[in-house]
């Protein structure tokens, strides 16, 4: 095979190798290194033994699972509803989904302090409705972090799901209806299975992004709901234990890449 086009790629390749691949390799290597003694596995042993790491790991798994589930429950009907809209309304809906996607994550996280705070919109609505006397605390706990994360990641699920839904041919459903299938049968036996690969791919994507979340737990968790990223921040910036941080990063990287490989397979299926 004749090799063409490489010279166009080379400048970026040099940048990526020097500024991206090498630092990551260096970090991976650091996790297996102890000053003066060379190769070691003790930083990984430290991971398993310290209960604080296990607690953080628990948070890092539990919160993304809940946030991802919330995303599916909110996102699927939203995407499905958008599919049925007429042109202009559909464009407005798309714009409203795309815009938050590009607005700074800090802005979107910050706003929840106003909405969910003790004197915030939600609490005053709850009190006005007489549902509660004392303000419900949404902030600086797991609930707040989960709401904030679900909000930030919703466009990542809705956009690919919507793209897959509008590719489904209406005539499939019409054919089923003319053969006497009930709307419920049509939805569960025809429509839903066709959206499933995109739903699964979107879910995995959202989950991956959840795993590395840093800003939202830091702001809405108020330091009380540490996730892996916040732990890493502490290990790098506050009590410098770079080797330990490198070991944790390695684990997070491997988990992420494994889930991403699964996502790629599903995504290819979804776009067929």
């Amino acid at each position: 095979m004749r090799s063409t086009g490489f010279s166009f790629v080379a400048p970026l390749l040099v940048l990526m190798v020097v500024a991206f691949n090498l630092p990551i390799l260096y970090m991976l290597g650091l996790a297996f290194w102890e000053k003066g003694r060379g190769f070691t596995l003790e930083h990984y042993e430290g991971l398993v033994e310290a209960p604080v790491y296990l607690r953080v790991l628990g948070n890092t798994m539990r919160i993304p699972v809940i946030a991802t589930l919330a995303n599916v429950i909110i996102g699927y009907p939203l995407a499905h509803w958008m599919r049925g809209l007429q042109n202009r309304a559909r464009l407005v809906a798309i714009a409203l989904v795309v815009l938050p996607f590009w607005v700074s994550i800090l802005v979107r996280t910050y706003a929840w302090i106003v909405v969910l705070g003790n004197g915030g919109l939600v609490n005053r609505a709850l009190q006005w409705l007489g549902l509660t006397d004392a303000p419900v605390s949404f902030l600086y706990n797991e609930l707040g972090v989960t709401i904030g994360m679900a909000n930030v990641l919703l466009p990542f699920l809705v956009l690919p799901l919507f793209a897959a839904m509008i590719r489904i041919d209406d005539r499939l459903m019409q054919a089923a209806a003319s053969l006497g299938a009930s709307p419920r049968t049509i939805f569960w036996k025809i429509y839903f299975p066709l959206t499933l690969p995109a739903l699964a791919a979107g879910t995995l994507l959202v989950f991956i992004l959840c795993l590395g979340f840093y800003v939202t737990p830091a702001i809405l968790g108020g330091g009380r709901v540490p996730m892996i990223s916040n732990l890493l921040d502490t290990l790098i910036n506050q009590i410098p234990r770079w080797e330990q941080a490198s070991a944790i990063s390695t684990v997070l990287l491997i988990v992420t890449l494994a889930i991403f490989a699964a996502y790629r397979r599903l995504d290819r299926k979804a776009s067929l």
Partner: peptide, 11 residues
């Protein structure tokens, strides 16, 4: 795809 926190630490 790589979590930004990992890019941050590596850099």
């Amino acid at each position: 795809i790589v979590p930004t926190i990992i890019v941050a630490i590596a850099l």
